[in-house]
């Protein structure tokens, strides 16, 4: 019973959602409104769970003096200070919250993201070899696209940006469509399996 009730809910709501796609009637849109209200209620509760998990994990680390527990203090302090500052002074421009955002969040995030350039450069150097005909084609295409995306390509010849557009618009697109087709079907099949209760690992436990 503990398992059947959730499965029934999934099936009924799922079928109603499928019906909603085909039925433009007011009844159907009222159902959607009602459903959306429920979603709005669930969201805030989940935030509490997330924050609780974060605090719990790090509090335990500090308590046990686990290796690198110092970082946990940093995490918890950041959590408390940012939240408190946001509540007390608001989050408008010119508040301490914005100061934290501009001077911590932005540079830290940008640093993480900028690592990408370094990783790509070293990956290109180490892994991009003309081992076979396919790999050579890939390599030539990569060089053309890289040149075509910056002004140097255009400066050499206007063909490079044109070929870049072609590569992105034709072979790239064809491959993407092929994969997207499979993905779309995979999603539909997974949704169907969930709705029919065939796939129930998201409920936790027994298949």
């Amino acid at each position: 019973m503990k398992r059947q009730i959730p499965l029934m809910i999934v099936l009924i709501l799922g079928l109603l959602f499928v019906a909603h796609v085909f039925i433009p009637n007011k009844l159907s849109s009222d159902y959607l409104d009602w459903f959306m209200k429920w979603m709005k209620v669930i969201g805030p509760f989940a935030i509490v769970l997330g924050v609780f998990s974060l605090v719990y994990v790090h509090y335990n680390k500090i308590k046990r003096k686990a290796p690198t527990w110092g970082y946990s203090i940093v995490t918890l302090t950041a959590l408390v200070v940012t939240t408190a500052v946001g509540f007390i002074w608001g989050i408008q421009e010119g508040t301490p919250y914005m100061w934290i955002f501009k001077n911590f969040n932005v540079p830290l995030g940008a640093t993480m993201f900028s690592l990408l350039a370094f990783y790509i450069a070293s990956a290109a150097y180490k892994a991009f070899r003309a081992r076979s005909i396919e790999a050579t084609v890939l390599l030539v295409a990569a060089i053309i696209v890289m040149l075509g995306r910056v002004s140097i390509g255009q400066a050499i010849t206007h063909w490079i940006p044109d070929i870049t557009e072609w590569i992105l618009n034709v072979p790239n697109l064809a491959a993407k469509r092929g994969i997207a087709l499979g993905v779309g079907l995979g999603m539909t099949a997974t949704s169907l399996k969930i709705m029919l209760g065939i796939e129930r690992s998201y409920l936790g436990g027994k298949d």
Partner: peptide
């Protein structure tokens, strides 16, 4: 971009 091409 040019640098990465040289790397490759």
């Amino acid at each position: 971009h040019v640098l990465i091409i040289i790397f490759i």
